[in-house]
Amino acid sequence: MCLGTPGQIVAIHDAAKKLGVVEIAGVRRVTNLACVVDEIPLDACVGEWVLVHVGFAMSRIDPEEARRTLSLLAELGDSAPADDGGLP
């Protein structure tokens, strides 16, 4: 349940209504920030990453915790393979 997508706040759309513009992989949408402004004040939230669900930012993504989870999983290998055109 509850599809959520990480996106970055790139602009404030309407400060009074706590609306911001969130960008997810080059796709932008006006997003309600009411649930995250407790944690990140509106005037400081541009650049922050949040989890977006049905047009609402539901939580700030903590980059430090994300890094810690990944390092727990051991360092990542070089995950970008050379472009071999997918040939078998």
Binding site: G4, A34, C35, V36, V37, D38, L51, M58, S59, I61, D62, P63, E65, A66, R68, T69
Partner: peptide, 18 residues
């Protein structure tokens, strides 16, 4: 809690208030 990058122990108070 495996999902620490998003889940805080006490949840999201603004959302719970709403």
């Amino acid at each position: 809690n495996q999902y620490r990058r998003l889940v805080r122990d006490d949840g999201n108070q603004a959302a719970l208030r709403a």
